[in-house]
Each structure stands twice: as C-alpha cells, then as structure tokens.
Nucleic acid binder design. Structure first.
Lengths: 263, 263
DNA sequence: CGGGGGTTTGACGAACGTCAATCGGGGTGG
DNA sequence: CCACCCCGATTGACGTTCGTCAAACCCCCG
C-alpha cells in the first residue's frame, strides 16, 4: 500500500536520469559522480499509488529509475485529467514550488524512485551548475510539453491527439534510450490514455483501432510500434509554427482535416 | 500596422502592474519608485496585432498598462488555441526563456504597454529582491492558471468552462482593481472566447445564453456581471486560490454523481 | 476451472460543430 | 441628421464527434 523502502538494494544508478540530463546540458565529472552515487534510499510504488497529494506540502525530491507516473487533477465527481506523464529519468519535486504542488503525483505502473535530496541541495548551493542548467532546460521542455497538451485538448480531434501523444512518448523515451525511433514500451491502459487525452475509454479504443487499421501503429502487450512516423507527424501537426492570423484566405477548403473513420 | 511608439505621452505609471506585484509580495520604497518611474518607451497596439511571434527570439520585457492580450498557438489549418489571457498588470517577456517563446503573443484589444527592461535588469542584478519575489509568485500563479485551463479543456463541459473562465477573469481583474466582486470589463468577442475555451463561436453563444437565462450572468457592451458567484463557482468546481497562492484542499468525500447542468 | 482486470464491440443519445441567414448597434461619410 | 455598412451577436437546421451503457471477449493467475 505505502511505498516500501529498500535501503540499498542493487545500487543501480539512475541511468535514465543521467542520460536525460546529459541530453539537456553538459555535466562535469564530479556532477556525474554525484548522480552515479545516488542509490541508497530508493522506493518502490505499486500501480495506482499516490506519491504526493495536491497541496501545500513539499515533495521530497526524487528521480524515477523505472516505471511511469503522472501528475493529475481529479474533479469532485470523479472526472480525472492527467496533466502530464512522467517517464524514467524524469524528476519529482525537484523544483520546489513555494505554494505546494499544483497537482497530485501518482504512479501509473510499478515504479522505482531514488531520493535526490542531495542533488537538490547541491544545485541550490551552486555546487552543480551543470545539473542546474540541465534542470532548467528540463523545466522549459516540460513547459513546452504542457502547451502541446493544451493545444491537443483544446483544438485537436481524438485521432490527432492520440497520434500526437504517441509521438511525444516516442521522442521522450528515445532520449533515455528506452526505445528507438519506431518501438518503445507503452504500459498505459486505455483508461489512462483517456484521462490524459480528455477522451472516454471507448473512444480511445476506437481511435487506436483506426490507427491500426490504417497501418500507422501497432500496440501489443506493452509495446508500441510506430509504423509510419511521417504520416503520424503529419496527422499530429507536429510543430506547426506558422504565425499569421489576420487575413487567412488559404484556409484549406479542399482538404479533409479529419480522416473520417469510414474505412 | 506596427506599434506606434509614444515617447512620453502622459507619464502615467503602470498602476495595474504595481497593484498586482503588491498583491504578490512586499515591495520596498525604492522598488516602488522604480516601477512608478517607468513610463517613457510606451507602445500602443491595435486589436489583433501580433506582439511577438512564436519562436526563438527573446521579447523585450513589457508591462501591460491597459488592454488585453493573449498567448496563442495556431495550427496549419487555422485552428487557434489561446493558451492564456494577459490582463493589465501582467508582464510580457519578463521571464526570459532560453529556448525562446513557446507561443505567440497577440493583442486582443487596443493595448498599451510600457518597456520594463530596467525592471528586468534590476531583478537580474539582485537590486530588486521584492520585485523578484513577486515575479516568482506571479509565475507560479500563471502555472496554476495553466493547469486550470488544462482541466477545463480536457474534462469540463462548455457550460462549466465558461463559468470557470469568467470567475478566473473576475478574480484576476479584482486584484488590479479593474472590477469588483460582481462586475468587470469583458472586451473579448465570442470568437476569442471560443478559441480560449476550445469551443466553436456558436456554441459559446448558446452557452452564454443559457447562463443568462438561468440568471447567473449578464453581459452587456463590454461589461460582465456575475449575478450569482456561488452558483457559478459550484458549476465551475472552483478550487479557489485567491490572494497569495493559498490552496485549500476541500476534497469532498461523499459527492453525488454529476451536478448535471440539466436545463 | 473460476475470476478479475483490461479490451473490444454494438446501439444509442448528448454535446458540440458547421452552414447559413438574420439581426443589431455603433461608426462613417454624405 | 440620416443612410449605409460592417462586424459581431444571434438563431435555426442539421451533421459529426464523442460519451454512455451494456455485453462479450481475452488473457493472465490463482
């Protein structure tokens, strides 16, 4: 039920986190040693377990070693919105929010984390400028993903949302070497997908079927395969940076923005 | 077309920004003087004008003196999602994002801004710790509003979204004394509301009609009146956060299924 | 062999979008 | 002062997307 503490199980370093930080900035040797030296104080969580409630209490800084988590908000009648998904290498509570966390954190799968308090301290004390920079970059990236999520929820169809989300997962997992350009682990249930994408379970299922039927993805036993990344990216409108609102005569009247399920 | 520069029009200090920062943190006298001394280098924008494109270029720090703006993203086929609305007293480009702006900034009404470069400098140089703290609090608040927006788009009905959004505007405008608990300026067209709430214009119109019919709001010539804030808050599921980020976790334990907005 | 969680499918309805026409008010030129 | 006009608000009819309900199915495990 509560997290089990495993004082110094295998002393496996947080590979994913190291890879992620290296991708976001340069780290000195001493910083790398600091990260590799982490390993006592690790915790295991079971799927569905709440790691931290929404509220004013600060969360102890942690890094995800394995497993997936999320930040979420739940309405009074049970509707849930997943704010973002946390993957191996992502941090929890690394950025202290002087008002408490804005959303609850919950394990989505079996989850292993390690305590990163000393990393947070080193960063605060200015003893790890490389890590500090990487964490700042990570925060910017997270903010960007949040805006992507906002556009997904506000202005994209179910079909587009799923494609966009799968591409996001693929990219993030590739950075921490938990997948390649085509294939990656996908342990989320359709219920979780629904809560992340603002859809119902049933509609997520049907949308996935459609993507399968069209030869765009495969989804077996916890593994996703993107069969046609280019077409998916096209559907998802990845990185649409075309400012110009005023006069917009080239609104595509001839194109079918929605690939109708009528197969 | 481009913004007109008005070197020292009336030397009106940015009252709204001062009030907002005072609500977010304590300012020293010298800091207040710094803010009151702003006033040369102001710019006027026309409604619809783009203030800054989405992209890597940094934006000159500015404060909104009057008028409303927004941050937005536009998809290739013209669909637009407004990320958030910027009100008098809000800043633009005050927080430098090392990867550039993540969304375009656009004036929604006639807009007056003043240059706040020297504020940004003072904060960076550590000469304005009070302002720095207030700006950090502002950033946290903005982040919180972003999560609200996410839940709105992902899990709330049109009816709930509109109620929630109006309440957000009321609270934010009250802080800068541009409205009271009931009444505030509302210069947004229904098209803008639609793009902010992820709805169509027509549906926004019908939802507003419904709120009017039920005696919850009035909306005349640029002024909104919330006739029954309590009921609106109930509809919107407000997780109220008011002056300085003081979240209250009144999670209702035994709630009834859905408070359906049955007409 | 039974059971439970996740997935799949069908039928149906509600929420929301689209198209198109009309209305209304404030600004502008005559 | 008035006619005109343009933009935004409003309304109706209709189509699509998506949600809900319910049942069947599947697979892993005890």
């Amino acid at each position: 039920m509560t997290s089990r503490l495993t004082p110094r199980s295998g002393h496996r370093p947080p590979e994913a986190a190291i890879r992620r930080l290296l991708a976001l900035g340069d780290l000195s040797d001493s910083e790398l040693d600091l990260l590799r030296g982490l390993g006592d104080r690790r915790e295991q969580r079971t799927p569905g377990e709440e790691i931290a409630p929404e509220g004013p209490d600060a969360i102890r800084p942690q890094l995800i070693v394995s497993g997936w988590a999320c930040r979420e908000r739940v309405l009074a009648d049970g509707r849930r919105q997943i704010i973002n998904v946390l993957l191996p290498g992502d941090g929890i509570g690394l950025r202290r929010h002087p008002g408490g966390e804005l959303a609850a954190v919950r394990a989505l799968t079996a989850l292993e984390t390690i305590d990163a308090s000393c990393v947070a301290e080193a960063v605060c004390a200015g003893r790890a400028p490389g890590i500090a920079g990487a964490l700042e970059a990570a925060e910017n990236l997270e903010h960007l993903l949040l805006l992507d999520q906002l556009v997904r929820l506000g202005r994209q169809t179910a079909y587009e949302r799923v494609a966009h989300f799968l591409l996001e997962l693929q990219r993030r997992l590739e950075v921490v070497q938990l997948g390649d350009r085509q294939r990656f682990p996908m342990p989320l249930t359709q219920e979780i997908l629904a809560d992340a994408l603002g859809l119902s379970i049933v509609h997520v299922n049907r949308t996935l079927q459609q993507l399968r039927r069209e030869g765009l993805i495969e989804l077996h036993s916890g593994v996703a395969i993107l069969l046609d990344r280019d077409r998916l990216a096209d559907i998802a409108e990845c990185r649409a940076v075309h400012p110009r609102l005023g006069a917009a005569p080239p609104l595509k009247p001839a194109t079918q923005p929605t690939a109708t399920p009528a197969a």
